Amino acid sequence: MIYLDYAATTPMSEEALAVYVESAKTYFGNASSLHDVGTAANELLTICRKQIAQLIGGEEKGIYFTSGGTEANVLAIRSLAYAQRHKGKHIVTSSIEHASVHAVCAQLEREGFSITYVPVDRYGQVNVEALEQALTDDTILVSIQHANSEIGTIQPLKQIGELLKKKQIVFHSDCVQTFGKIPIDVKQLHVDSISIASHKIYGPKGVGAVYIHPRVPWYMSLPNTTHEGGFRPGTVNVPGIASFTTAAMEAEKKREVTQQKMSELRRYFVEQINEKQLTITVFEHPTDQLPQIIGCLVHGFEGQYVMLHCNRHGIAISTGSACQVGKQAPSKTMIAIGKEADEAKQFIRLSFGAHTTKSDVETVVSVLEQLQKERMST
């Protein structure tokens, strides 16, 4: 099977897997226990917290480990919104956020908060002027993703962060797709809070983290919670966190070389479909693009049909965010950038990773070419 769905999840690296096994054997204690076994686990947890904080230019005290990116988004947004509710109840986000962000915003709206969804341009980038116009005296929180999970457009976080810092509005960003791939410095970006996940960077599933700057207050979602400083209930997954930290440090070490490879593979894919004159539209921001995510429309075919066709030929691709699989509705991102519903249903996503080769690209292009030739001959 040729795997081209790395934006959904990645296989664990050998290093991350080895650390997980060793940590599970050696540091099996509950990090909250006061005996020596628990203390050893807590010391490892402290080291991991410090290393993750260093990777994002943050402070160790601001790291809270979670069960993944979705929980990280939900807990961060809820805890920040409720901590600021004495100042107002207005939240601003974008129309192309991950499903977890839209879900928690819908929940908060039912609880009395008001939500504004700012538009994006034809490349899927947030309009900063529209965002500024959406702010009111009642605005307490803005949540804008770092990069879109369907088409890979990178958002102007620094520009947004500078704006929100002047207005003293808390700024959260879903960085699940960008952590370990492009530089993230929370101080330079003026971001107060971010969400990250392990399984997007060759670490284990079921592990993630939230960073909230220590000066920013947050609200305890479940009263009397003791784990993670009260941020999240449940025994902390020390082996998973150690493995996540290993994967994160490994990703950072290889980041520049990896991104160069991803850019080359992307260029090659575009060259191939152009050379073969395939009726495929690739979405790409001229300057702010995460290269490993290729969102495109295969004209004349529904995305699910293309995905199943590729699967029959031993190629794994997707029709968008894995969190939306099974839903027949057209891609929200496609609708947000101005596509009609029928056209939006033609969307597929390819995403490259550590094991992707030029040969894999040639194979998927050949399969897509065959699909379109079959349609022309019928």
Rank of each mutant, 00 (worst) to 15 (best):
Val186Asp: 02
Val186Arg: 01
Gln188Tyr: 05
Leu189Ser: 04
His190Trp: 02
His190Met: 07
His190Gln: 12
His190Lys: 12
Val191Phe: 08
Val191Gln: 04
Ser193Gln: 02
Ile194Phe: 03
Ser195Ile: 01
Ser195Phe: 00
Ser198Cys: 10
Ser198Pro: 08
His199Cys: 02
Lys200Leu: 15
Lys200Pro: 03
Lys200Ser: 10
Ile201Glu: 07
Ile201Tyr: 02
Ile201Val: 09
Tyr202Phe: 06
Tyr202Gly: 00
Gly203Met: 00
Pro204Asp: 02
Pro204Ile: 00
Pro204His: 00
Val207Cys: 13
Gly208His: 04
Gly208Phe: 08
Gly208Ala: 06
Val210Ser: 01
Tyr211Val: 05
Ile212His: 03
His213Tyr: 05
His213Glu: 04
His213Asn: 12
Pro214Asn: 03
Val216Tyr: 02
Pro217Ile: 00
Trp218Tyr: 10
Trp218His: 08
Tyr219Asn: 07
Ser221Leu: 14
Ser221Asp: 15
Ser221Thr: 15
Ser221Tyr: 12
Leu222Gln: 14
Leu222Met: 14
Pro223Ile: 13
Pro223Val: 06
Pro223Leu: 06
Asn224Glu: 13
Asn224Lys: 14
Thr225Glu: 02
His227Arg: 13
His227Gly: 05
His227Glu: 15
His227Val: 05
His227Gln: 15
Glu228Trp: 07
Glu228His: 10
Gly229Cys: 09
Gly230Lys: 13
Gly230Glu: 12
Gly230Trp: 15
Arg232Thr: 10
Pro233Met: 10
Pro233Phe: 06
Gly234Ala: 01
Thr235Ile: 14
Thr235Tyr: 00
Thr235Ser: 09
Thr235Val: 15
Val236Glu: 09
Val236Gly: 11
Val236Ile: 15
Val238His: 10
Val238Glu: 10
Pro239Tyr: 14
Pro239Trp: 14
Ile241Glu: 14
Ile241Gly: 11
Ile241Leu: 11
Phe244His: 08
Phe244Ala: 04
Thr245Phe: 08
Thr245Ala: 08
